[in-house]
Design a protein around this nucleic acid. Sequence first.
DNA 1: GGCAATATGTTAACACTGTTCGCATGACAC
DNA 2: GTGTCATGCGAACAGTGTTAACATATTGCC
Lengths: 199, 199
Amino acid sequence: MSTSEPTDRYHHGDLKRALVEAALEMLVEGGAEAVGMRELARRVGVSAAAPYRHFRDKQALIQAVAAVGFERFHEAVEGARDGVPEDEQFGAMAEAYVKFALAHPRLYRLMFSAELGQFGDPDLRRAADAAYGSLALAAAKEDPERPGEAAISAWAFVHGLSMLLLDGQLLGVSIDNADPLVRALTRRAAQRIRTTHPA
Amino acid sequence: MSTSEPTDRYHHGDLKRALVEAALEMLVEGGAEAVGMRELARRVGVSAAAPYRHFRDKQALIQAVAAVGFERFHEAVEGARDGVPEDEQFGAMAEAYVKFALAHPRLYRLMFSAELGQFGDPDLRRAADAAYGSLALAAAKEDPERPGEAAISAWAFVHGLSMLLLDGQLLGVSIDNADPLVRALTRRAAQRIRTTHPA
DNA sequence: GGCAATATGTTAACACTGTTCGCATGACAC
DNA sequence: GTGTCATGCGAACAGTGTTAACATATTGCC
C-alpha cells in the first residue's frame, strides 16, 4: 500500500479507513448505486449505526471514497511524465488520464457524478484540483498564447473521451480494445495544439 | 397543460405520458436521485403500483425520460445549423450542444449517467445515435482525411466541456456566465481542425 | 344491446434502505 | 479506583421499489 499516513491514529479501531476500503470494493463490484450504508456495515462487521460515528451521512462517505479516487488519479497522471521528453509530456499524460478512467470505470464515474454535492467538501475540491493541475500545466505549455483556453480544451477532450468510452457510446470500441484509439487521439490532440500555435 | 381533462376517473387515460412528464419535472427539480416511483405516482394522482402497468421497473421509466431528452437534444443541435454557412456549421452545432447541456443540466446528466443500463434499450440507443449523428457528420466534413477521428475528437470535446461546466470544475466559470467561454472554445475547436487539415 | 376478455387501476404487504435515539462499553486521565 | 469521552449496539421510524390479489373500466364480438 502506498498511502501510509499514520497521522491521526485514534486510540482504538481504524473503522473509518475500513469503511472507505469496503466502500471502494462495493463500488468496483456494483457501481455507486450498490454502495449502501447497511450493507457496508455488514461487510465490515459492525452494526448499521456504527458508520455514522465517522461519517455524517452517506454522502460524506461517498465523498471520502471520491477523494481517494482523485488521489490515485493524480498519482497516475503525474507518474506518466516520468522519463518522458518535455515535448511529449502532454500526450503521455493525456493518455494516462484516459487509461485511468478505463481501468477504474465506476470509480471515475463516481468522481464526476452529481452525488458529490457540487464538490462542496474542501478536501474533495483540493484533491480534484491537484489531479487536474498537472495536465492543465502541460497543456498550457503547449500553447503559451492562450494557456487558459488550451488547458480547458485539453481537459474537456480527455474527460469527454473517457466518458464516451465508459458509456460504450463509440460504436465498435469497448473498454478492452480502446487502447489504440486512445493513443491515436491523444497524440493527435497534442500535435494539433502545437501545429496551430507553434512556439 | 397537456390534455385538458382533469376529471377524476378510475382510468387515467394517458398515464404513461403523464408519468414521463412528471418524472421530467421531478428530474429538473431535484436531480435523478429525486425521481421516485412512489412520489411520482403521488404527483400524477394514482396509486403507487399503477406505474408498473406501464414500466417494468424504475430503470425503464428513467430510460424513457432519457429518450425524451435525446430527442430534444437532437432537435436543438440539428436546428443550430439552419441558415448557417456550411463552413460555420460545425462551430454552431458544437456551441448549441454545450448550450443545451447548460440549459438542462440534470437532464443532460441523466442522459449520460450509468443508470441507463449501458444503453441496452434499443429505443434509447437509436435516440442517442440520432442526436450524435448530426454533429459527427459536420465534424467529419471538416477533416476529410480522417473523418472518424475528427468526429470522435469533436464529440469528446463538447461532451467533456459540458460536463466540466455542469460540475462547476472550471474555476470562475459557472453555468450562468459560461457563454463567452463556450463560444470561444467551440470556434477555436472548429478552426483548429481546419487549420491542421486544410481541405 | 349484452357479455366475455383485457387493459388498467387499487390496496396491502414484503424486504429493503438511510438515519436517529438511548444505552452499553471500553480506553485513557487523574 | 472514578469519571469522561469516543465509539459501538439494538431498536425504531419513515421512506423506498416491487409484487400479488383484487376491482373496475374499456374494448371487441355475438
